[in-house]
Amino acid sequence: MTVAQERIERLEVLARDATAECNDDRAREYVRLARRIAERHRLSLPQQFKRFTCDACDAYLRPGKNARVRLQDGHVVITCDCGNQARYPYD
């Protein structure tokens, strides 16, 4: 595991903790920083990190707190407070 991957994982933990403490601005900064590191080192973000971040506003999503999760025919729809929706398939 490279240093960049370790840093991205650490930033994910920090973003999750900051969101739990209702510090959304700090969590956004952690998400933005992790994305910049991934782009710079040509890495893909971990799947869990991608699923729990909003592409539009960089918020770290917590279902029930700043995101709504709904199940529809064959996919999960996650709606952020900003209105952005992400759809992921499930079997």
Rank of each mutant, 00 (worst) to 15 (best):
C82R: 07
C57F: 04
H75P: 04
Y30H: 14
E12D: 02
R10L: 15
R42H: 12
C54S: 07
F52R: 13
I78C: 12
V31E: 11
L33F: 00
F49H: 01
R35W: 02
P63I: 09
K65I: 14
T2D: 12
L45E: 05
Y88W: 14
L33S: 13
A86R: 13
A18L: 14
R70L: 13
E39Q: 10
I37Q: 04
R32V: 05
L45I: 01
L11D: 03
A59H: 14
H41D: 11
N23C: 06
V31G: 04
F52L: 14
L43A: 05
I8W: 00
T19E: 15
E21S: 15
G64E: 01
Q5R: 08
I8A: 03
I78M: 13
A86I: 09
E29W: 01
E9N: 15
L43I: 09
R62F: 11
R16F: 11
A34I: 04
R87C: 12
A67R: 01
T79A: 10
F52C: 09
R42G: 03
R70W: 01
R62A: 12
N84M: 11
V77Y: 00
R62I: 14
K65N: 07
Q47I: 11
Q47M: 11
Q72N: 10
F49Y: 06
A59W: 06
